[in-house]
Design a binder for these strands. Structure first.
Lengths: 196, 196
DNA sequence: ATCCGAAATAGACATTTGTCTAAAAATCAG
DNA sequence: CTGATTTTTAGACAAATGTCTATTTCGGAT
């Protein structure tokens, strides 16, 4: 089970040096959990209960559009946090679903324990600012790619940067994430130069 | 000149209650500046020097693509902060230009003074987290709109939410922001139901 | 008021992407 | 292993959007 926390600390270390004191807090407040594939972790219409760190596995964040179609908002590639963050932080009702596509090993922390950790530890605010900054930069790039790349260019870039997702997640979810139909993604893959 | 700071405090008040002490710090560290229309405030290839609050006027953030075309990343509608934030915070070289399209009244603060303000004041970290959270939510929505709305739907939504921009900013910048060609925007406007 | 350059519109055509439908391939429960 | 279900591919056609070129409109400087 130590493996879970090592993954978390490796991830955090990329952003911030975490003092041993704060590591102890994390070990106490983050709960390890195994979730089998094809499980809904959080649902639209409810306040998100947990902040999730993915130790291993593939998850999807989606919402339903006006016609009831599932729209993929986010997919993870490897270890990282995966949470309906805005509504989790504000304790407001979410419109998003969190879906474990494959078996997942997670570390989970409740909203109350996030606050407890903030009071006890010394690094949480600084960490939050840095990770939000990084997420914002990534999201701006995604919006720019959506605006300025063709569907084929978006797919090639996605495949290059996320080979793991390509091999573990149904293509229909990837198509939705890229803003295209499965029909068109199939066309792209047929003609494409990608080797996957 | 007090008008400048009232605008800033009104804006901040939407997010956080600013104690009088911190207002005094802002009055000392934010410098009022008038910038005439069609001025480049920051340039690609340099470290952004200032964090800008737009009291009035319209600004554009753009970068150059591989072919040297200007790609509009952001446009403001009314008062808000407008900065190449990621590189400003990290003191790294930016790839973005900040362009005052119209005459602008700004409040500007240097990177060093941001840090001075953080040391002296009590609310800056909390404010930063909240505004980053809001920006992230807005940016996610932009990426989703790019992925899931047609060009016409994006324009109608933009026109509805930003009538001020429509009347003060050249359409070619708006087209770029929406990820379409000026030719196509013209088509949309001709047939559209929008009254602008 | 006039001229000039930039901005906006627009026609004709090409390319990209979506829709609808069906078949083939892969996955999964029993 | 087998049948059922889901996922992926694909043909035919329609709709959306881009490209290239020209013309018109508009705003600022003289």
């Amino acid at each position: 089970m130590d493996y879970y926390y090592e993954k978390l600390f490796d991830y955090v270390a990329e952003i911030l040096a975490l003092p041993e004191q704060d590591k102890a807090i994390c070990r106490r407040l983050f709960i390890p959990e195994f979730v089998p594939g094809n499980t809904l972790l959080e649902e639209a219409g409810k306040v998100p209960r947990y902040h999730n760190f993915i130790v291993s596995g593939y998850m999807r964040n989606f919402h339903l559009d006006a016609d009831g179609n599932e729209i993929t908002n986010d997919l993870n590639n490897g270890s990282r946090f995966f949470t309906s963050y805005f509504h989790f932080m504000n304790r407001t009702v979410s419109d998003e679903y969190l879906h474990c596509i494959t078996d997942c090993h997670l570390l989970r922390i409740s909203r109350d324990d996030v606050e407890a950790g903030a009071r006890e530890g010394s690094t949480q605010e600084a960490y939050t600012i840095k990770i939000l900054n990084n997420q914002l930069a990534l999201n701006k790039q995604r919006a720019l790619d959506m605006a300025n790349l063709t569907a084929e260019e978006r797919y090639e870039k996605f495949a290059r940067q996320n080979p793991g997702i390509l091999m573990n997640v149904p293509l229909q979810y990837i198509a939705s994430y890229l803003g295209i139909t499965p029909r068109h993604l199939s066309r792209i893959r047929k003609s494409g130069s990608s080797s996957f």
